[in-house]
Amino acid sequence: MLAFVTVGSTRFDSLVQAVLSQPVLSTLRLKGYTRLVVQCGNSSFELASSISGEKTLVVEREGVDIELWNFKPTLQKEYESADLVISHAGSGTILDVLRLGKPLIVVVNPTLLDNHQQELAAALADLGHLQHSTIPDLAQTIQSFEPSSLTPFPPFDGSRFAKLLDEHMGFS
């Protein structure tokens, strides 16, 4: 199985460092994730100097094949091929991943405590659509995470806005 990690358009140093740490990698391996792809953005970590742009670094640790790179124009393919997505709290990422029906763990960024984006992740976790985690708890969260226990995210329903605007503009 494949786990995909994304930090979004900026950086999330502690998330990249955590997913490359021994406890998280061993837990992933234990849960059957033999492949790990990490979109690192501009994060600073031990191997950051070995990657740039779409240039990929491949390493193997704790029995997990790891692929690291900075950015790609779109992550849609990565989401589609992943069995588990671990991400920052960006609303775009959250919507894209949940709409594909992929199990999602959102990790709180401790350096962005006042960021309203954390509110969205928390609210969706309360509704059971995703799993919320902190950096120190990440290994434990992956260990106990049961994707089947998540509440399916509703598909896009355009009819509500269409009805609202059509009524307002006199179409119905």
């Binding site: 358009s9 960006g90 609303s91 775009g92 919507l95 896009f156 355009g158 009819s159 509500r160 806005f161 269409a162 605007l165 059509d166 503009m169 006199g170 179409f171």
Partner: peptide, 29 residues
């Protein structure tokens, strides 16, 4: 009440704003 088409303008504010605005527009006839 109207059956004539109406003109629409939408501001795409980049990033997540653009994604959401285009999702709203995509719902329209």
């Amino acid at each position: 009440r109207s059956t004539e088409p109406r003109s629409l303008a939408v501001f795409l504010g980049s990033g997540g704003h653009t994604t959401e605005a285009l999702a709203l527009v995509s719902a329209l006839d």
